[in-house]
Amino acid sequence: MLGTLRTLDDGRIELRFERRLGHPPAKVWRAITEPGELRHWFAQILDYDRFRFDLRAGAEIAFTPAPEFADLGTGRGTITRVDPPRLLEYTWDTETLLWELEPQGEAACLLVFTTTFRDRGSAAALGAGWHTGLDLLTRRLDGAAPGPEGAAVPDELQAAYERGFG
């Protein structure tokens, strides 16, 4: 299912995804907060050997690019809300990322991921990129290999987001 898009009252754009995962919140929490897990599914431009989360409100984050992406520069962010293993919100430059985990029995949870940003023109690319990342997260949690395409956004998925958000 594609993410959903809406414009907020302040003009920012909100992109929201929901995934029902067959894993408890604690396991998903580790996958969204530990650099050793993030490297398998999160933004592939980052240097996870130098990436750290200090999981406390107000902590600063440096999104250091991998050497081959050094020209992008280091992104900056701040942890704005944290309530393990249920809620994590932080900024990444002008984007806000919100991860919510709702238990669904003892062995599953609902992951709601919302990203808020300003540039409506980037919605299709962000939608396809985050969708692909969440697919990789699901595969990682399930113990499956990432697949032959890795983190590449499939052309048909990009096209679907362009049709839906264009």
Rank of each mutant, 00 (worst) to 15 (best):
M1R: 11
M1I: 07
L5R: 03
R6V: 06
L8F: 01
L8T: 02
D9A: 14
D9H: 06
I13S: 00
E14P: 00
R16D: 00
R20W: 12
R20F: 13
R20H: 14
G22T: 13
P24R: 11
A26Y: 01
A31W: 01
P35S: 12
H40S: 14
I45T: 14
L46T: 00
L46A: 04
D47A: 10
Y48K: 04
R50Q: 13
F51K: 09
F53R: 11
F53A: 10
D54E: 15
D54C: 09
D54K: 13
G58S: 12
A59E: 02
A62M: 08
F63A: 07
F63R: 07
T64K: 13
P65I: 09
A66M: 07
P67L: 07
P67S: 13
D71E: 12
T74C: 07
T74A: 12
G75T: 10
R76P: 01
G77A: 05
T78V: 14
R81H: 10
V82L: 07
V82I: 13
D83Q: 12
P85A: 01
L87M: 08
T91F: 09
T94V: 14
L98V: 15
W99H: 08
E100A: 13
L101H: 04
E102D: 10
P103D: 04
Q104A: 15
G105L: 04
A107M: 02
L111I: 06
F113E: 06
F113I: 08
T115K: 06
T115P: 03
D119S: 07
R120T: 06
S122W: 02
A123Q: 01
L126Q: 11
A128H: 00
H131K: 06
L136V: 12
R139M: 10
G143L: 11
A144Y: 10
A144N: 11
A145Q: 15
G150R: 09
A152H: 06
V153K: 01
V153M: 07
D155C: 04
E156M: 03
L157K: 04
L157V: 10
Q158F: 12
G166W: 05
